[in-house]
Simulated assay, not measured.
Amino acid sequence: MKRDKLIQYRKKKNWSQKRVVQELREKHSIKITDSYYGMIEQGVRNPSLKLAVAIAKIFKVRPENIFLSTNTTKSCEKGPEQAI
């Protein structure tokens, strides 16, 4: 599943995928390849929690705004017996 929001956030800054990878390395000491980042955008690969949080910080959004497609907290609001 292609991550359109992630692509939109990147394009809004007029950044290339290479620029995002540079930001991750420089600001968060996370080293990934341009190719791997491209696979994350295309939905072929899922980032680790640490990487997902770093990507979200770069774009100044919450990780769930990029990586979750549904609201996963609703089942927890009903109580533990109903969430199962």
Rank of each mutant, 00 (worst) to 15 (best):
Y9G: 00
R3Q: 03
S75M: 11
V21K: 06
A54Y: 03
N14H: 11
D34S: 04
Q8G: 00
R10Q: 02
Y9D: 01
K12S: 13
F67D: 11
E41V: 08
Q82R: 13
Q42G: 07
N14Q: 11
K78V: 09
P63V: 12
V21H: 02
R45Q: 08
L68I: 10
V21L: 07
P47Q: 14
I7T: 04
A54T: 03
K78F: 09
I55R: 00
M1W: 06
K12Q: 14
R62E: 15
S16N: 09
K50W: 05
V53S: 03
N71T: 11
V21I: 11
K57W: 01
I58Q: 00
I84G: 04
I40Q: 03
M39N: 07
L6H: 01
A56L: 07
I58L: 05
E64T: 13
K78E: 13
N71I: 14
Q8D: 11
I40S: 01
P80I: 14
M39G: 00
Q8W: 01
M1E: 11
Y37E: 01
Q22A: 04
P80K: 12
G79Y: 09
L24D: 01
W15L: 13
V61R: 04
E26H: 06
T72F: 14
K60H: 14
V21D: 01
M1A: 10
E77N: 09
I40R: 03
L68A: 12
I30W: 10
F67W: 13
A83T: 09
K50Y: 10
M1C: 08
L24T: 03
G43N: 11
W15N: 06
R10T: 02
G43K: 08
L24N: 02
N14K: 15
E41N: 09
H28W: 09
V44F: 01
S69G: 03
W15S: 06
K18Q: 13
K5N: 07
Y9H: 03
T72P: 05
I55W: 00
V53I: 15
D34R: 10
W15Q: 05
I58A: 02
G38V: 02
I84S: 10
G43C: 12
M39I: 00
K60E: 15
K31W: 04
H28Y: 15
K57D: 13
G43E: 14
K5C: 03
K27Q: 12
K13I: 06
A54E: 02
H28D: 09
T73E: 15
Y37T: 02
T72H: 12
V21R: 06
S29G: 07
D34C: 01
K50Q: 14
N14M: 07
Q17W: 06
Q42K: 15
I55N: 00
E26T: 03
V53A: 05
G79C: 06
K11C: 06
E77H: 05
P80N: 07
K60C: 09
